[in-house]
Simulated assay, not measured.
Amino acid sequence: MTTRAPSAAFEPHRAPVEPVPAPSAPARARSARARLLWLLVVVLALAATMLASVAFGSRTVGWSDVVAGLGGAEDTLEQAAVAKRVPRTVLAVLVGAALGLAGGVMQGVTRNPLADPGILGVNMGASLAVVTAVAYFGLASPVGYVWVAMAGAAVSAGFVYVVGSLGRGGATPLKLALAGAATSAAFASLVSAVLLPRNDIAGGFRLWQIGGVGGASFERIGQVWPFLAVGFAICLLSARALNSLALGDELAAGLGEHVVRARATAALGAVVLCGAATAVAGPIGFVGLVVPHACRLLVGVDHRWLLPFATLTGAVLLTAADVVGRVVARPSEVEVGIVTALLGAPFFIHIVRRQKVRAL
Rank of each mutant, 00 (worst) to 15 (best):
172 T>R: 12
304 R>G: 05
35 R>P: 04
218 F>H: 03
317 L>A: 03
113 P>L: 08
267 A>V: 04
108 G>S: 07
123 N>D: 08
11 E>C: 10
146 V>M: 00
123 N>K: 09
181 A>I: 07
189 S>M: 13
207 L>Q: 15
112 N>R: 12
360 L>Y: 14
11 E>P: 01
290 V>T: 03
358 R>P: 04
140 A>R: 11
283 P>H: 01
76 T>M: 05
90 V>P: 04
18 E>P: 00
81 A>R: 05
50 M>C: 13
308 P>V: 03
350 H>S: 13
59 R>C: 02
337 G>Y: 05
61 V>G: 02
170 G>K: 12
120 L>S: 04
333 E>M: 08
276 A>V: 09
33 R>H: 13
276 A>Q: 05
235 C>Q: 08
128 L>M: 14
155 V>C: 13
340 T>K: 14
132 T>K: 06
143 V>L: 14
208 W>S: 15
165 S>E: 07
297 L>N: 09
116 D>L: 02
263 R>F: 00
131 V>W: 06
206 R>C: 03
82 V>I: 09
55 A>F: 00
122 V>W: 02
261 R>Y: 08
69 G>V: 10
225 W>P: 02
189 S>R: 14
128 L>Y: 07
134 V>H: 10
347 F>I: 11
239 A>Y: 04
86 V>L: 15
154 A>K: 07
59 R>K: 11
74 E>W: 05
94 L>G: 02
80 A>K: 06
302 D>C: 11
224 V>I: 13
35 R>Q: 05
12 P>R: 14
259 V>K: 08
107 Q>C: 06
38 W>H: 13
346 P>E: 01
188 A>Y: 09
169 G>P: 04
119 I>M: 12
233 A>P: 07
70 L>D: 02
214 G>H: 12
165 S>K: 10
177 A>K: 03
150 M>V: 15
111 R>P: 00
93 V>F: 08
94 L>C: 04
225 W>L: 15
88 R>C: 03
236 L>P: 03
277 A>I: 02
153 A>S: 15
98 A>I: 04
302 D>R: 11
209 Q>C: 14
181 A>H: 06
292 P>M: 11
164 G>R: 00
120 L>K: 10
12 P>D: 06
49 T>R: 00
35 R>M: 01
1 M>A: 13
338 I>M: 14
110 T>Q: 12
58 S>D: 13
346 P>N: 07
180 G>D: 05
103 G>C: 01
302 D>V: 07
47 A>H: 05
255 L>A: 10
357 V>Q: 14
46 L>M: 13
353 R>G: 07
328 V>M: 14
173 P>T: 06
180 G>H: 02
107 Q>N: 11
240 R>G: 04
221 I>C: 13
298 L>N: 01
307 L>S: 06
231 G>A: 06
342 L>T: 01
118 G>C: 14
204 G>R: 08
213 V>K: 15
115 A>D: 00
246 A>R: 13
305 W>A: 10
43 V>S: 03
243 N>Q: 12
325 G>Q: 06
345 A>K: 08
320 A>W: 05
295 C>L: 04
150 M>K: 08
227 F>H: 11
160 V>E: 03
354 R>S: 07
223 Q>I: 08
82 V>Q: 01
51 L>R: 06
7 S>Q: 11
195 L>V: 06
64 S>G: 10
208 W>Y: 15
35 R>N: 09
3 T>W: 03
96 G>S: 05
28 R>F: 02
